[in-house]
Design a protein around this nucleic acid. Structure first.
Lengths: 191, 191
DNA sequence: CTGAAACGGAACAGTCGTGTTCCACTACCG
DNA sequence: CGGTAGTGGAACACGACTGTTCCGTTTCAG
């Protein structure tokens, strides 16, 4: 049974719609997701038998995107602080609405590898430690906190776009500048 | 009909329990809230006839706390950047779990003055503008973004406590330092 | 002791989301 | 033309949560 083009497209449409709807209201009904996707509720159930299957698929999709973004950012290149800013930019581009879901709602983060420290998480923590050594990141900020703050600022940037009607480019600019300044060691001139 | 001490205490217990339970899962049932409060579901309905009444009460409570925190921070005193950091500290102390609710869930922010720019919001925006004038805040960061970022970092700090088991004091320290560094104008020595 | 206040539990009807089944429709390929 | 893949809609049973009513219990002040 080959996965035809039609099936792939329908599946993707449902997945996209789910992200849009559930990021607005994580307890939205499957009917709303189906309507957003422009398909019948029956069809939705053909692709994702249970709600948890849909949620799980979104989680997996997100993990994949995070891995891709981490890869693209080439964390090993250049000063650690610049690498983190690059990573933040990649996250912003790839994660969009998915972010608010995984960031805020417990149902998406549970039941996955997630929290058991994915590879990307570990890479980020190691990167901050490198920044401590090479002097590009404020030594008083712990790696775990930098991680938290990175995600929080990303979330803020997307909320900025959504709620304040700011352009993506503008929001990303403010976000990256804030992150860079935040990590910058105290008592040195800015780059 | 005097509001006896008993009634006040019961009402407060329910409200506190609601914050705890709903901040874990905003779609939790009222039975769970009642159980957390150590109260029968019937009693809960005596104080908050409908779910929306409970939600609304939490919203009002939060607005009050924000107003108190804004007042305590004495925003008019000293350089704007220091005032914002003071404000952040007050928010952290007063808002606790409530934060994750109002910050992430649409149901709590809708149906209130909220977003229609409460007084505290306006004060914060004006404060950032003052910071632009007195040179204590990076002029490239817009007031609206600073507002977003402030809330996001606060949320991150509480998540840091919850998920990473860090002490409140430690989390607050990282948060305030990050905020201060973020707002700091480029090209000047740190204070 | 008496009565009011506050409470908890059981029970009920109503609503809503879910997951499933069945059937009819369309598009397309051979 | 006939068959298949993909779909949408109607209908159903089931469970969960909600809001309400009723009744028995506890507590405490007068």
């Amino acid at each position: 049974m080959v996965e035809t083009g039609v099936r792939t497209r329908t599946r993707q449409a449902i997945l996209d719609a789910a992200v849009v709807v559930l990021s607005r209201d994580s307890s939205a009904s499957l009917s709303e997701v189906a309507r957003e996707a422009g398909v019948g509720r029956t069809t939705l159930h053909r692709y994702f038998a249970e709600r948890s299957d849909l949620v799980h698929a979104i989680g997996t999709l997100t993990l994949e995107r995070i891995a891709v973004a981490t890869d693209r950012a080439k964390l090993e290149v250049g000063p650690a602080r610049e690498a983190i800013v690059r990573l933040c930019r990649e996250y912003f581009e790839l994660l969009g609405d998915v972010l608010s879901l995984v960031f805020t709602d417990p149902q998406f983060s549970s039941g996955l590898d997630w929290h058991e420290e994915s590879d990307s998480d570990l890479e980020l923590l190691a990167l901050v430690q490198r920044g401590h050594r090479d002097g590009s990141i404020d030594r008083e900020l712990t790696p775990e906190w930098v991680q938290q703050a990175l995600w929080a600022l990303l979330y803020a940037a997307w909320a900025f776009v959504r709620e304040c009607g700011v352009s993506r480019h503008e929001a990303l600019g403010q976000c990256l500048r804030s992150l860079d300044r935040m990590l910058h060691p105290v008592g040195e001139r800015a780059g």
